[in-house]
Structure formats: structure tokens, C-alpha cells
């Protein structure tokens, strides 16, 4: 990939999948992407479990795919919709890695003559409380990777990954300038004024991450009701000063578009250099002997 572009024409496809109907959902996504064919964006982000639905219980084993297969399906989807255009796609899916199952998100580069998986992130924080039951069915990822794209360094955080302040922090310290957050959040909390509490909470935490680290945040929320639990959509794009540039409604599938000026990142960081400050103080914080961390290095992954 050549020189980093300063302009990122981003789109979020907020999907509303039919439960478990992967082929039909692919088709619907293709129809939606065709709408972009006259002016294709540089990057399209889709939610967590974008093409299967989120609450699959044991059916996750029927629907999980090898990463290469999902990459091929996404690439074909794009070529069918916007033939000839180069694009990056980021989407969440259930991954079958030779019998080990993950809640994953992929960043894929698609050119007319081939595709390349740029990064595969396996969700690290699997919510298993209350309405959530992920770790009953899935294994957790062990790495927070950042990766180079033609728009600079990025990180993928799947849903709860982004709820722990330390995760966007580490991603930013490792150089990520754009955080992509595919998510599936069952909406709840009706006591707030004007919107569900969980939607307001998500927007707050994403804005705080953007402001603190001077990063763009692209949040893709799944939508549609699943067994009474309404996925709260509300996909949004947030600039490095915390401004919500574009936001989708909670209900129904839609496409959100916004052109991002990536030079905003350096300007925001010059005004509020918290990330630089953190870089110098981070060793003192993380090497604190009172922290409950294993000493002498991390345990082996497997």
C-alpha cells in the first residue's frame, strides 16, 4: 500500500439481518452496497455478527465460517455491487478456526483482481452475564493488534472490547488513529430523556475515547429485534475532538456516510496532547507493583 491518504470516505452499513439466514443477508447487503456504486466509499464498516444476527446460542456452530471463506464472500459481495472499485471492508462475523470458535471482526482490502485480509481481530471481552452468554459458546481472543491501512494505522474493537477504557487506550498508544467498533448492543434503559440509556452510554464512551486519544471512532451497530431484545443500531462516526459527525437511528438498516479529514487527528492532538502525555507516563502506571499482573512476562497464548 502506497502513501497514506488524508481523506477517508467512510460508510457504515447498519445491517438488520434475518436470524441465521446468512445467504439472504449477504444478498440484502449486496443490494444495499449497490446504492454506493455511483460514488463508492473507501471504507465500509458493518456491525458485529453483521450477516447472521447476534444471539445464535448453539447455532453459532452451524453458522461460523473460516476467515478465508468470509473474506471471499465479502469480496464477492463488493464486486457484485460496485465492480471495479477498490475498497476496504470491515465486518464482524462468527469465526470457525478449525473447531475453535470466535466472535471476530475482519479488515479486508478488496481490489478488482483479488482481496487481502489486512487484519483479523478476535473479540477479547466476551460478555457472559445477564442477557449475554458469549463465553458459553466462544473462545476469547488474546491479542489487541493494530494494523496498517492505506489510511494509516487502525484497530478493531468488537463491542465490549471498547467498553474497557484501557483497550482503546492501548490501541491508541500502539499507534491506531482510527478505531473501528463493530457492535451488537441490546437496547435497554427507558428512564432517560429522549433515548435509551444504553445508547447514550455508548455514545459517551466512544466520544470520551475519541477526545482522550485524538482518534476517529467508527461505530457500526447491529439493528433489529432478536427474541424481544432490540439491537440498538445508532451507528456513528466521531471525530478526534469528540464531535459526532453522523449518526444513524436505532431502528432499521441504513447506510451512514461521511468523508473524514484524517489531518484532524494531528490538529486535535496538538490542542489536547493527552496521548503524548500518556505515552511517557504509561510505564509508571503499568509497571506499578500493586497492579494484579503476572510478573515475568505474559502466560503463553496456548
Amino acid at each position: 500500500m502506497s502513501e497514506t491518504s488524508v481523506r477517508l470516505r467512510a460508510a457504515i452499513l447498519q445491517t438488520k439481518p434475518l436470524k441465521g439466514q446468512y445467504a439472504r443477508n449477504l444478498q440484502s447487503a449486496g443490494t444495499a452496497l449497490k446504492q454506493l456504486s455511483k460514488d463508492p466509499p473507501d471504507l465500509v464498516v458493518m456491525p458485529e455478527a453483521a450477516l447472521t444476527g447476534y444471539f445464535l446460542e448453539g447455532a453459532v456452530y452451524d453458522l461460523a465460517l473460516p476467515a478465508e471463506r468470509f473474506a471471499r464472500d465479502l469480496a464477492q459481495l463488493w464486486r457484485g455491487a460496485c465492480a471495479g472499485a477498490v475498497v476496504d471492508l470491515a465486518a464482524g462475523f462468527y469465526e470457525n478456526d478449525a473447531g475453535t470458535y470466535y466472535n471476530s471482526a475482519m479488515y479486508l482490502h478488496v481490489a478488482p483482481d483479488g482481496e487481502q485480509i489486512v487484519h483479523l481481530h478476535r473479540k477479547m471481552f466476551l460478555p457472559t452475564y445477564g442477557v449475554f452468554d458469549e463465553e458459553r459458546f466462544l473462545s476469547r481472543g488474546r491479542n489487541l493488534g493494530v494494523f496498517e491501512t492505506r489510511f494509516g494505522r487502525m484497530a478493531l474493537l468488537v463491542c465490549e472490547d471498547a467498553c474497557h477504557a484501557i483497550v482503546p487506550t492501548i490501541a491508541a498508544v500502539k499507534g491506531a488513529r482510527v478505531l473501528i467498533v463493530p457492535s451488537a448492543s441490546p437496547g435497554r434503559g427507558i428512564e432517560n430523556d429522549g433515548e435509551l440509556g444504553s445508547i447514550a452510554q455508548w455514545r459517551d464512551r466512544l466520544r470520551f475515547a475519541a477526545i482522550e486519544h485524538g482518534v476517529f471512532v467508527l461505530y457500526a451497530g447491529l439493528t433489529g429485534f432478536e427474541g424481544g431484545k432490540g439491537m440498538s443500531g445508532s451507528s456513528c462516526m466521531i471525530d478526534p475532538r469528540g464531535t459526532v459527525l453522523a449518526e444513524a437511528p436505532p431502528f432499521d438498516a441504513c447506510i451512514l456516510r461521511c468523508d473524514l479529514d484524517l489531518r484532524e487527528i494531528d490538529l486535535a492532538r496538538a490542542t489536547l496532547p493527552l496521548l503524548g502525555d500518556l505515552g511517557s507516563a504509561l510505564p509508571d502506571l503499568l509497571l506499578d507493583e500493586e497492579l494484579p499482573l503476572p510478573r515475568g512476562g505474559r502466560a503463553a497464548d496456548r
Binding site: G187, I190, E191, D193, G194, G228, G230, F251
Partner: peptide, 16 residues
């Protein structure tokens, strides 16, 4: 309860 929010949510629930 914010009744407008709850109504919007429950109408979507019934439809979906």
C-alpha cells in the same frame, strides 16, 4: 419512564 422512547421501542418490537 420516557414514554415516547418506550413507545418507539415497543412499536418496533411488535413490527419486527
Amino acid at each position: 419512564i420516557d414514554p415516547a422512547v418506550a413507545t418507539e421501542w415497543l412499536v418496533a418490537f411488535l413490527r419486527d
